[in-house]
Design a protein around this nucleic acid. Sequence first.
DNA 1: CTGAAAGCGCTAACAG
DNA 2: CTGTTAGCGCTTTCAG
Lengths: 341, 341
Amino acid sequence: MVKRRISLKDIAKELGVSISTVSRGLRDHPDISDELILRIKELAMLRRYTPNPMAMGLLKQRTRMIGVIVPDLVTHFFSSVISGIEEVAKEHGYFVIISSSYECYQKERENIENLMKARVEGFIVCLSQETTDYSHFEQIIDAEIPLVFFDRVCLKDKVPTVTVDNFAASRRITLHFHENGARRIAYISGPETLSISKERKAGYLVGLDECGLEFKSEFLEECDLSPQSATNAVHRLLMLPFPPDAVFGINDTVVFAAMKEIRKAGISIPEDILLAGFTDEFHATVVEPTLTSVMHPTLDMGRIAARLFFEQTENDRVQPKSIQLETTLVVRNSSVKKSKA
Amino acid sequence: MVKRRISLKDIAKELGVSISTVSRGLRDHPDISDELILRIKELAMLRRYTPNPMAMGLLKQRTRMIGVIVPDLVTHFFSSVISGIEEVAKEHGYFVIISSSYECYQKERENIENLMKARVEGFIVCLSQETTDYSHFEQIIDAEIPLVFFDRVCLKDKVPTVTVDNFAASRRITLHFHENGARRIAYISGPETLSISKERKAGYLVGLDECGLEFKSEFLEECDLSPQSATNAVHRLLMLPFPPDAVFGINDTVVFAAMKEIRKAGISIPEDILLAGFTDEFHATVVEPTLTSVMHPTLDMGRIAARLFFEQTENDRVQPKSIQLETTLVVRNSSVKKSKA
DNA sequence: CTGAAAGCGCTAACAG
DNA sequence: CTGTTAGCGCTTTCAG
């Protein structure tokens, strides 16, 4: 179907020289005369010669492909991290193959298997929320295939990671709520399996403590990150005899669902209840009131993940680095009472 | 760095047979004894042998990779189409390499160039909004490399396409507005270069006509799909001496921006102005009021695009098909006055 | 029933 | 300064 692409052989034949001469000429080998180099390059340009990556791959045992696995594609956070990864990958002449685990452990495993078959040189991964067994990653490590985790991580002693300071961020939100008059602060967490869930919860607890607020277990809800389960969680919070006067959630999707449910209950934000989210999706500025949220340095996260990746391909195995980035709390209308604003 | 993967040679050596015997055994060649086949397969399994795709690629001149180029990744519409493509691609044992043009013509060209170098077998593309020159695609066609366009298309006489019935959809919105009492219907279009812009505008015009409404050029705005330019467009509409009583936009992003601006002007939706969007992003249900929008069959769009792709790889060149899918108008609160609802 | 050899496109060591 | 050869992993004749 597809026409065969031009090869060194074609150029060699047309020029009446050997294949290796062309190969060398194209790469400015000092053994080839300047004049011949010129003729070779000219013809190669004319015929639009580009080296066959499969031949190169076979020879060098490198594919220049990175497998990236994210829990989903639609979230702005992941798209943005991917952009960062691609930027650095391109600088190194690498391609990125993106797969989505759809938050599903089984799919995550399949993706890895498929990408291994395709001979990606390594992986950059954000764990699916279902993942509690890490054996598929341990296999990658044992095979000495480069691997980097970002945001949701595991096996930190063996694998380089890029994360944000989740603890600080959720502590910050808690303090922010308190400063704005909240005394009954609730938090909707994600699955306990995720590192981000644990860290954000810890920040919440310490934050409460620093504000002199008592932790109430009924104010700590958990959801599976789906809008539906977030809705249920908020519903339970609102049904409490003494409901919270501030709520934040593990990400903006959760908080958007919360917003809907709160509105449905006829409760006003921020008058009756303060609200804040995580990740700062684009839509945080679209909703009414605009949503206070923790902004992640997404592009940098991607760039750094890619750099950690290349450190592995280029150097010999070193102690894995864990890089933690800072977040910014972007205060908007949902967490500040109008009278104060 | 990476350990060499197991090859046929390794298995052959271990079994004391030749490479070709192993190759045949693995594929149940009738010439090989059942007993040997069994031993070969067993060892292959044990050693986790998987064929080297680069060797296969070299031999067969196929990479089993499809290059997909979309204007952006964050939009739910594109992520969802990609899921559809991936689904069908996987059935055929193909991989998808996703690139974003970021709505930029230059990037679109670069992406194609890079993917060509990587020897993708063909392309599935949604045009960037900047693209008016199609020579890069004509090169692909001339090289007889499979190509499919979806949603935003061009060169329909040479390239198979999947689109939605944009004309019908925007005509439908216009009628819907009219049924709900609107008499001054405005439309915020996208760049005239895009097929979807032209078609949706045409539907708007015919819709107006059918409702017995006169077309007013000041009600037809254009934007570059960015929130900022959408905001400006709405602003101009609201500043008119006789502003519109209904507005729809070429996509939901545009309409979200519009919503913000309308709210800022202290105008209520849907009481003072009806609103509707296109593409039905997830967030359409998050905003207040919930947004009426045209729902696209995104997954199917992806699936069909992939099928059209494989028709090209499998058959000889045929007359390119243009497939048009139907949309659904999802009516929510933004386009129906409360009194009526 | 099995092996040897050629070739896909390329580079690098070895010859001239 | 240039050509020959081997080999990356695999399939496919062609020979046994």
